[in-house]
Design a protein around this nucleic acid. Structure first.
Length: 264
DNA sequence: CCTATAGCCTGACGGC
DNA sequence: TGCCGTCAGGCTATAG
């Protein structure tokens, strides 16, 4: 699930539920999501502290702890947060649970264990070390920056949008939506895009991500004209009715309309 | 530099 | 019903 819009929704959810409450306990049900840290070390850094604020960069979420340091969260393909009071009937389905002194719990779910939670000293250093590009919704990430970046790359346009070291936040689903709305085939070489196409791509990237956040990243609430609610092989294109095509790019499925997005 | 592939993991689904 | 292969919205390492 989690690309930029999803993680932004998680951030707002965490901000509205979990800030300024004393952390009374941390339960780790699977150490794989911790990377290298031990549960005891994580507990030491969190217990008795409070979350004060959070910031998102691409698909990463960083939560500040009072007294110093951050908690870094990544959600892999199958992660989300849930905040609850009543004892859950299956608490083990959360890979990690953070209990607050008000009796509520913040659960981190990650079915396939592809997500990570770990202490982070400084988000800026983390972003550098992991070679993450600028967040695509950062106000400083303007059309000019985008153009320069894309034109200097030789890959196909879908791979460029999804390359986190070029720009951070876009994954498989939203790249399909952005390309559909910009009427570009995913395999168009990035350095072959002309100025109007680059502008289209940039403005659609911005509007798709912002609108998706406004829809709480819920496909059921997205506009009917979007690809996402119809993103399956053979489904009619919401614009022209032609059957949506499924192609493989980098081992993963990309969906596009063969009519509206003619091949390179 | 770029692409393709496998691997990490679990669970849902379709076909036989 | 049971088994098997495939696929799933991420990222990394490796080979070509």
């Amino acid at each position: 699930m989690p690309e930029l819009p999803d993680v932004e929704v998680f951030k707002r959810y965490l901000d509205s539920t979990s800030l300024r409450k004393t952390i009374s306990g941390v339960t780790v049900n699977n150490t794989k999501i911790l990377g290298g840290v031990t549960p005891a070390a994580l507990r030491r850094r969190m217990q008795g502290r409070r979350f004060t604020r959070s910031r998102r960069h691409g698909k990463h979420l960083f939560v500040r702890l009072d007294g110093g340091g951050w908690l870094g969260m990544h959600f892999g393909m199958t992660g989300y947060l849930r905040y609850f009071k009543d004892v859950d009937e299956a608490p083990e389905r959360d890979r990690l649970q953070i209990r607050f002194s008000n009796g509520y719990t913040l659960g981190y779910y990650s079915l396939r264990l592809l997500g990570r939670i770990e202490p982070v000293e400084d988000p800026a250093a983390y972003i550098r070390d992991h070679e993450l590009g600028p967040d695509v919704l950062d106000p400083g990430f303007d059309l000019k920056t985008f153009k320069t970046l894309v034109q200097g790359t030789r890959g196909i346009v879908k791979s460029v949008l999804m390359n986190q070291s070029l720009m951070a936040g876009i994954g498989n689903i939203y790249s399909d939506e952005i390309l559909f709305q910009a009427r570009l085939h995913p395999r168009v070489p990035a350095d072959k895009l002309d100025a109007p196409a680059l502008r289209r791509l940039y403005t659609r990237m911005q509007s798709v991500l912002r609108k998706a956040i406004a829809c709480d990243a819920d496909p059921a609430r997205m506009p009917r004209g979007w690809l996402i609610p119809h993103r399956a092989r053979g489904q009619p294109c919401p614009r022209c009715g032609a059957p949506i095509a499924q192609i493989k790019i980098g081992g993963r499925s990309a969906y596009c309309c063969p009519q509206c997005q003619p091949g390179p």
